[in-house]
Computed example of a mutant assay.
Amino acid sequence: MPISPNQGSTGGGTTVTITGTNLSGTTAVRFGNKSATGVTNVSPTEVTAISPSGSGTVGVTVTTPGGTSNPVSFFYVGAPFKQTISPTGGSTAGGETVTINGTGLSSATSVAFGANSATPAVVSDSQLTVVTPAGAAGPVGVTVTTAGGTNNGLTFTYVADPTITSLTPDSGPTSGGTAVTIAGTALTTTDSVTFDGTPAPFTVLSDASLSAVTPPGAAGAVDVVVSNDAGSATAADAYTYIAGPGI
C-alpha cells in the first residue's frame, strides 16, 4: 500500500494519496494514533487524506468494513532553517549560482527569490545550491520550500550590470593623480574601477556617476573597467595617458 508523498510537515496539512486494493468504503485513515482529515475514497484502489500534525516516523493505516490495513511509513519533517546565503547579490539577468546553508534542507523542492522561483540542487540536509532566476534590481526575500514547510529570512540583492557613457576628462599625465568623473548607469554598487587593469581609488557620487583618481600608467589609450556584483562594463581606449615633456 504505497503512500505519496511519504513525508510532510510536522504541522500537518499534507495531502497524501494512498493506493492499494479493496479500499472501497474507507471509514478512516490514521497516521500513528491520529486520524487524518479530508478522507476521500477516490476508487477501490485509491484514497486521499490530509495528514494531522506529528513527528518522527509513523505508520499509516486505512480502515474499511473489511478491517484495517498493514501500516506504511510516513515521515514527518520539520520546517527548514536557513543560516547563510552566498553570494548575497547578483545580476538582474539571473544565472548566479547561490549556496544556502541551514538545516532541514534535504527535501527542498523550490527556492523563491521574491516572486520568482527556481528548483534547487540538494547537496545535503545542511546545504543546497540554486541558480537565480531573473529579477528586478533591488533586494528580495529568499524563501525555501521543503516537505516540512517554508522558511524565509534571507535577502538577495539583484544588481543591474553597470554601463559607462563618458569620462571627464578623458586624458591626463602618465604620473596619474587625475580626478576623472565616470558617467553611466547602475554605478551605486561599484566595487572596482581599473585603468588598464590597475585599480583606481573611487567614490560613488550617484547611480549615474562616480569619481576615480587615475593611477600611474604608460603613455597611450587604455581601457577603463567598472565592476559590481552583477558584472563589468568596459570602455575601450577611453582614457589616454599623456607623457610629460622632456628637454
Rank of each mutant, 00 (worst) to 15 (best):
S91H: 11
S91I: 06
S91V: 04
A93I: 10
G94M: 11
G95A: 10
T97M: 07
I100K: 11
I100S: 08
I100L: 11
N101F: 00
N101G: 01
T103C: 01
G104I: 08
G104A: 07
L105H: 10
L105Y: 01
S106Q: 14
S106T: 11
S106W: 03
A108T: 15
T109C: 01
S110M: 13
V111K: 14
F113W: 06
F113N: 05
F113I: 07
F113P: 03
A115L: 06
N116D: 07
S117F: 03
S117H: 02
S117T: 12
A118Q: 08
T119S: 14
P120K: 14
A121N: 14
A121Q: 14
V122N: 05
V123H: 03
V123F: 01
D125N: 14
D125H: 00
S126G: 11
S126P: 02
Q127V: 09
Q127M: 12
L128F: 01
T129M: 07
V130Y: 05
V131A: 12
V131I: 15
T132C: 03
T132F: 04
P133R: 05
A134K: 04
A136P: 02
A136W: 12
A137D: 02
A137S: 13
G138N: 09
P139F: 01
G141C: 04
T143A: 13
V144F: 00
T146S: 05
T146W: 02
T146R: 05
G149W: 03
G149I: 03
N151S: 14
N151V: 15
G153R: 00
L154M: 09
F156Q: 09
T157Q: 08
Y158G: 04
Y158Q: 09
Y158W: 12
V159G: 07
A160K: 13
A160L: 13
D161K: 10
D161P: 04
D161Y: 00
P162V: 05
P162F: 08
P162D: 03
P162A: 06
T163D: 04
T163R: 04
I164N: 06
T168I: 07
T168W: 00
T168E: 13
D170K: 05
D170T: 08
S171V: 00
S171N: 14
S171G: 04
S171R: 12
P173Q: 11
P173D: 08
P173H: 07
T174W: 07
T174V: 15
S175F: 12
G176L: 12
G177F: 06
V180C: 10
T181Y: 09
T181H: 07
I182Q: 09
A183I: 01
A183K: 06
A183N: 15
T185H: 11
T185Q: 14
A186V: 06
L187C: 06
L187Q: 04
T188I: 14
T188N: 15
T189M: 11
T189L: 14
T190W: 14
T190N: 06
D191G: 14
D191Q: 12
S192F: 08
